[in-house]
Design a protein around this nucleic acid. Sequence first.
RNA 1: GCCCCGAUGGUGAAAUGGAUAUCACGGCUGACUUCGGAUCAGCUAUUCCGGGUUCGAAUCCUGGUCAGGGCACCA
Length: 547
Amino acid sequence: MEERIQKAVAEALQKMGIGDVSFVVERPSNKAYGDYAVFIGMKNAEEVAKSIQEKLGNSVSEIAVAGAGFVNITLSHEAVSFAVAEADAKGEEWGKGTAESGKRVIVEYTDANPFKEMHIGHLMSNIIGESLARLIENESAEVIRANYQGDVGPHVAKALWGYSFFGKEFENLSGGSPEAKLEEKVDLLGQMYVYGNLDYAKHKEEIDEINVEIYAGKMNSLVKHVYDEGRKWSLAHFEKIYRILGTHFDYYFFESETAEPGLRIVRDGLEKGIFEESEGAVIYRGEKKGLHTLVFITSAGTPTYEAKDIGLAFLKEERVQSDRSLIVTAAEQIGHFKVMLAALGEIAPLIAKKTEHVSHGFLRLTTGKMSSREGNVITAEGFINSITKRTLVKNPDPLIAEQVALGAIKYMILRQAPGSDIIFDEEKSLSLDGDSGPYLQYALVRARKILTYAGGENGTDIPPAPYVIERLILHFPEVAARAARETAPNLLVNYLTELAGEWNSFYATEQVLGSSEEIYKQRVTRAFANTMTNGLALLGIPATEKM
RNA sequence: GCCCCGAUGGUGAAAUGGAUAUCACGGCUGACUUCGGAUCAGCUAUUCCGGGUUCGAAUCCUGGUCAGGGCACCA
């Protein structure tokens, strides 16, 4: 529909000889203004309105010029019903777009580090990244999900050092079946890390030496055994959390494999004059691009995060030929990405050009900053569990309680623009009614319940005017497309909240079953259920059967 | 110090240079407990400050204030 209006307006302007005037077809700020509005300016509004009227014929019931030059369009009952029937008939296909058709898009997100806990920061990256992946997929792109994990570095060396104290416990757990004691295993790794951290001041040299050995891949057999085993435990535990979250990955990249190409490419760039040597380190002078200087290779010859990211970009290119590459990380890395992409732009302009950094804010706690050393880290798993405990009050079934908890968490994170921080109050925690995930899930449960009873052939009347909910349903494909285009799942969240609210109003005032308009209302109910089901799927929020 | 980002009712957020700034939470009133009350209806209160551009600014420019982040060998 939006497209048809777009075309009609463009044609009208063309005819008037002012085809280069830009305009936007939008959903008006106030429902009273109609279903669509175009701002065209006072001078031309009348003529454009007439032209749209002619073009769209009986699809519109009312077209009016208002305000400072708006053309307000109200769709006819037939046009609304046509869209609702489409929403009903298309089922899972309702809302699919073609904006990214034929493109291959790689989305990197989550990026948790083995040997450390996955915390709520990773949870944010995962939830936002997964939703973006789904939104872009919905626009007919082929989406490749990638996860980049830090399996080398000081944090690993410290955890391995902890073996000197926890060796016995480690070996006891090492023997059993891989799944059985997963929690105990990662818990032990956490303790080993804390121990290594405490011991670092005293045994700095030994621990640093382990770090270098890990980088070089020259660990002695005992260290290698602990490393391999611990890495396996961590990754298995991550997989378990991914299953709970409803996410998965097509490719895993590790820092242990990006270090070598990163070093090679940066050294190569050094010869070409892209990088410089300074105090024994290899640096990139960001100042030439209005940025700041960063070290890519340390004076000890190890690659920094930046060099590894360069290596990663090439590694991605080698495995997946993409048209577009998104990287979802916390906002604190914005500066690093700008410099890295500037450097990459000189080495491989095409790769840099298609790469886009999507940053998200922090989940900030009212109680202060999270720090793994201070032990007040909220782990992803612990967070999900604590919310699940609350949803268990109303849902004795633990599976449903978990789905509702995930709905609440994902909603909280996705409802705001990806860039901004979320302030999380541990006391008040998160809302389970009103503006919340469960509110959406509950609205859908109620609609589906009606449909399980439905079957009556009576009630063939048609209401005099379409219901408000119908006028909302028809906008779904446009909202999904815009959320994908602007990498902004919050736009879809807002829409679905409005939709659920409108459904609940409809539910409160209109009886579906046994009414004289039963058939008509059942179709509205199915159209709503499809819209909500598909919308929740794009957010990665589970649609609960009961609650 | 330099760079980046932000500031919208008591709280959390929307708003593509356009209409009377939208939604939810909270608080206060009320409804109904019929197809499931994690519901519905109503009331409540808002664009950080100063200057500018524009027919028109929450939005753009500029100068402040405040908050967050980054700024060479961590990731």
